[in-house]
Every structure is written in C-alpha cells, then in structure tokens.
C-alpha cells in the first residue's frame, strides 16, 4: 500500500468538496474499504488522498420504506443492515436473498450498499501482477487464458465479470441512484445505466463523474403482487463469488405475467439484463415449459470462452429456477 492522506467527511456534500481538493484522479472515497484496501495493498490502485465517508453515517446510513412503498437505502447502509431488516425481508425478500449469500458476515458488516456497486472485478489477471487491459495495458490475458470464471456475454475488450450480488437484483427492481455532485448538484440515474462495460476511454464498469458521490439507492414501489427470486450458484456453500446468478422479478395478474425483469450476475462486465426474455414472458402464464424456453432464449447469444462453457447450462438451470421461484412454483 502506498502512503496517502486521509480526511473525513461528515456528509455527501463534504465528501464531494474534499474529493475536489484531492485532484482529478488522486482522491477516492472510502467507506467499508473491503475492496479498496485490498486493491491498494496490491498497488492496483494508489490514491494520494482517501476521503473517509463513514463519519457521514448519521445522514447516509438508513433503510426507509416510503408511504408509496418505495425503499430508500442510504449509501452507507451496510449489507448486514439490509440482511437484518425485517421490513425488507417481508416486503422485498429478493433483496434479503441477494445479500444473505454475499461474501461473509464480517464483510457484510463492513461493506456498504453503494460501495458494493462500485467493487471492481475479481479477475485474477486484474488482481494479479499482469499489465492487463483493464489496468491500462494492451491485452486481456483472460480472453485466451484461464477464463473459467469469466464472461459469456458482452463485447468489451475485458472479459471479467461483475462480482456484485446486489447489482443484478437492483437492476431487476428498476432501482435508481442519487448522485451528489459539485456545487450541491444532484442527479438520479437508473442502476442499470450506472453500469457500462469498460471502454478504451473508461476502463471501469460504472460511470461516475469526477467529484461525484453516490448518496442513495431508491427501489421504486413494485406493482401489487410482484415477486422476485435471486438464485446464486457457487462452488462452495458460502463465501464465493457467483459462478452465475439470476435475479428475476415478476408481476402477475390472474396468472399472467404483466411485467418481467431478468438480470444475470457473473456472466458479463456488468449486471446482464435480458430484455428479450422479459418480452417473451410478458403476457404469458409462467409454466415450467415457458421457464425452460426463457432460459434457452436468454443464453442464445452467449459466447463462452475456452474454459467457461459450463456457464451456459448452469445459467439455464438457474434462470429456470429463479423464474419458477419468483412465480411461487418452488417445490
């Protein structure tokens, strides 16, 4: 870890201010630090200034259901806060499911909701000493290398996958972010659009302007009768990033799907929303056959690499299960 200066912010606005003092690329906000500290330890990132935003917890650590049913999640709410919240468990169990199998209890107690969305890929070339494309190099070493844990979708030069469990669920819930910016400005942005595959110019999986700070995640009220399910496939029973994960959110009326959302984790640089399947499901009765058809459709455009072909049948199975579970057809 390189030396750095450390300052504290007691509000999002103060953090924005301090970030600007730190210069364009030399300053980073730190909250739980669960990802940033290990990136800094391995010298993958070496900010000159850390703005510790945890002292802003009084303002930014909350979970609140609005009268209309929307859920507001303060940026500094931890994954453990979400996991333990009885109202979320009752009203948005898909969110509870998403955090329950994320990381470990200790990491969930440290990691914040906003920070979780901004964690960087676990790709071992990125995390290792390889001068990979995502770190500014010329080549993605995973593309023709050890890519068992890598992407089966997407066109980015980087084939790492997004590691978050929360992100696909928030996409499936049509969640939005509130982002504080310089001069007291604020903007809102759908979570889905916050994520974008890394490009030559912006080698990162999310889009935040310099000096911006995420202050809130808002999950809009879901239609009456909406239900969701999150299915995570791991290669051990706990503490593993998803090989494949599926967030499915369905609203049905009279047994017919009115609206469907399907987002996959562990398959692309970003949470992978599958609009074609959502269209397929809409207006239909969700049967095992339809779920299977949806799973086939979702994987139609997959292009696995040398060592991750298994993700295709695995994702199909996970999609079938998530859809049936969301429709209340679990055994």
């Amino acid at each position: 870890m390189q030396p750095f200066d450390h300052v504290s912010a007691t509000s999002a606005a103060a953090a924005v201010e301090l970030l600007q003092q730190g210069g364009p690329s030399g300053a980073r906000v730190i909250a739980g630090g669960t990802d940033l500290i290990s990136l800094m330890r391995d010298r993958i990132q070496s900010p000159r200034l850390l703005v510790n935003i945890l002292p802003a917890a009084a303002a930014l650590r909350y979970l609140r259901f609005e009268a209309d049913g929307a859920l507001r999640v303060g940026a500094l709410a931890t994954l453990a806060d979400i996991e333990r919240d009885p109202h979320i468990a009752a009203r948005l169990p898909i969110l509870t499911q998403a955090v329950r199998d994320a990381a470990t209890p200790q990491l969930r107690a440290m990691a914040t909701a906003a920070g979780n969305l901004m964690q960087r890929p676990r790709c071992w070339y990125y995390r290792g000493e390889f001068p990979c494309w995502l770190k500014g190099g010329d080549e993605c070493f995973a593309r023709d290398g050890e890519n068992k844990y890598h992407a089966i979708f997407g066109a980015s030069p980087c084939v790492a996958v997004h590691p978050s469990d929360l992100a696909p669920v928030l996409v499936a819930l049509d969640a939005e972010l509130t982002i504080a910016g310089p001069g007291g400005s604020a903007r809102t942005l759908p979570v889905e659009r916050f994520f974008a595959p890394p490009t030559d110019d912006e080698r990162i999986e999310y889009r935040l302007q310099p000096g911006e700070v995420v202050s809130e995640i808002r999950v809009p009220a879901q239609p009456a009768g909406a239900r969701g399910a999150y299915v995570k496939v791991m290669d051990r029973q706990a503490w593993a990033f998803a090989l494949v994960s599926v967030a499915a959110q369905l609203s049905e009326r009279d047994g017919v799907v009115e609206r469907a959302r399907l987002a996959l984790g562990g398959v692309a640089n970003v949470p992978w929303r599958v609009a074609a399947v959502e269209d397929l499901l809409t207006g239909q009765r969700l049967t095992p056959a339809l779920a299977a058809q949806a799973a086939e459709r979702a994987l139609e455009n997959a292009h696995p690499l040398t060592h991750n072909g298994y993700k295709v049948p695995m994702a199909r199975a996970a999609i079938r299960r998530a859809l049936l579970a969301a429709a209340g057809q679990e055994e």
């Binding site: 730190i30 500290i37 510790n52 453990a80 200790q106 107690a109």
Partner: peptide
C-alpha cells in the same frame, strides 16, 4: 483477524486504524 468494533465482527486486516 476478526475483532469486534462496537460489538460487530469485522476483519481488522481490511480496516484502517485511522478509520
């Protein structure tokens, strides 16, 4: 490296002392 901070179990290897 688990320790308790305000009763909550956390990893002290990922926690900065200044924080």
């Amino acid at each position: 490296c688990t320790v308790l901070i305000e009763g909550e179990a956390v990893y002290s290897c990922l926690t900065l002392a200044v924080a």
